[in-house]
């Protein structure tokens, strides 16, 4: 009699972290749930959702710790961390931390916590990491220029009917679709 011990987690610790993998929820259900979260944010706080603004504050926090004088002489950074102002003292910071914890919790709950790299079949992991970093840098730059990312501008401004946010949203899709063909090797 052979026992398959390797693939079956035995200890409670392993069982806790290896929950059965569940499929993603249906996109429409996801949309409605996300909409309810977005509504709750506006209804309770008057603010929408966001991500890049929170990351921005972490970056400025580091900059302020290393070179406070530089922060105090750069207008864009001044607003967030000038003088004694604490860049982390803002509602978007707990929001971003919550997002990280929520993503982790959902990954755990649905058995999707896994160290892995998602990539197209025709590129190596290293290439994927390089392009993820490059894309992230482009995205980060664009998001700050647009004063918000997909969550802060498109979702929040879209639901409150801001003209700028709707144009922004079309610009994001236009930019991505325009380039999609040329970078198809990355994904297909």
């Amino acid at each position: 009699m052979t026992v398959q011990t390797q693939s079956q987690p035995t200890s409670r610790w392993q069982k806790f972290w290896k929950r059965p993998t569940k499929p993603y929820i249906h996109p429409y259900a996801g949309g409605i749930l996300l909409g309810i979260v977005l509504f709750a944010a506006f209804f309770l706080t008057g603010n929408g959702l966001g991500a890049s603004g929170g990351l921005n504050r972490f970056v400025v926090w580091v900059q302020d710790a290393i070179a406070p004088q530089h922060v105090d002489t750069t207008p864009y950074l001044l607003k967030m961390a000038g003088g004694d102002k604490d860049p982390l003292d803002d509602w978007i910071v707990p929001l971003v931390i919550g997002t990280l914890v929520g993503g982790f919790a959902s990954g755990w709950f649905s058995g999707r916590l896994k160290i892995e790299t998602n990539k197209g079949p025709r590129i190596s992991k290293r290439q994927r990491w390089f392009f993820a970093f490059a894309g992230g840098a482009i995205m980060g730059y664009g998001a700050r220029m647009a004063r918000g990312c997909t969550s802060g501008q498109a979702l929040s401004g879209g639901a409150t009917l801001s003209v700028g946010s709707w144009l922004f949203m079309f610009a994001v899709f236009a930019g991505a679709y325009a380039l999609a063909y040329f970078v198809r090797r990355l994904w297909n």
Binding site: A137, I138, G142, M145, C149, T150, F170, A174, G175, A176
Partner: peptide, 20 residues
């Protein structure tokens, strides 16, 4: 907003994510 959005679109397809 429009220029930033276009740049973000490029970042989206190259990097595969948006910040959130």
């Amino acid at each position: 907003g429009i220029v930033g959005g276009l740049i973000m679109g490029v970042g989206f397809i190259v990097g595969g994510f948006c910040p959130g």
